[in-house]
Design a protein around this nucleic acid. Sequence first.
DNA 1: TATTGTGTCATAATATACTATGACACTAAA
DNA 2: TTTAGTGTCATAGTATATTATGACACAATA
Lengths: 123, 123
Amino acid sequence: MDFNESKNIFLQIEEWLNNRILEDKIHPGDRIPSVRELAEEMEVNRNTVMRTYSTMENKGILENQRGIGFFVALEAPEIIKNMQKTEFFEKELPRLLERIKLLRLTSKDLIELVTLIKNNDHE
Amino acid sequence: MDFNESKNIFLQIEEWLNNRILEDKIHPGDRIPSVRELAEEMEVNRNTVMRTYSTMENKGILENQRGIGFFVALEAPEIIKNMQKTEFFEKELPRLLERIKLLRLTSKDLIELVTLIKNNDHE
DNA sequence: TATTGTGTCATAATATACTATGACACTAAA
DNA sequence: TTTAGTGTCATAGTATATTATGACACAATA
């Protein structure tokens, strides 16, 4: 995994995990890689992964069974969606609108966006 | 100015300055606050502001006259726009589309948003 | 000329994320 | 019981952003 400079690694790992859950590549109830496993795989320290898992546990996304490992909580997808929806509407979208204004983006640029949203309606 | 944790301060200042230039609140040819001034105003160290100004000078957005101060380059708005358009279409927009897909955002969500905003209008 | 305000550079100190490592408690399975 | 795999905690070290200061060169102005 290549990390973004200028943003905390443990947060990037959390984002990566959240996405994998939303993408249904990891399912509620699944056991996720152990702290040591993921640390080695990502070439990162144990403590960094531990920090990610801990914060996600505090949010209710992960559950822990001592001596066994971390598991994806049943409510994880719902929690993540709610968190990200709030983040999206309160911060990202306003920022996006401002950006569009400043960059003078045309409607042609946004056709793809509108199309995608309407496609979601039919699912 | 309240800074985002988890992102370098000198980059946040650059973003703030770029926006002010695009918003036409600072104009090409204008002199911008001195390193010491802005540092005090933002409750930040001189060196941090200096780092922002230097990187922006390297990008051609600012020009410097030793002993006098920093000035907004004539081509600044164009440079910033090009930079941000590239950033927008290559990174932010794809990320946005992915987010919309993962969150399954529908027109219904947009209606809720509009409703919320309109309610805010009456407060 | 003297003063004040510029940027610039250098140095040391501080805060924090991240690393490196060891030790320990718990659990499952041989 | 023993072993190997879990999480957990503590400690020290490293890297880097940021702070805190001082000193200096340059420019404008009284």
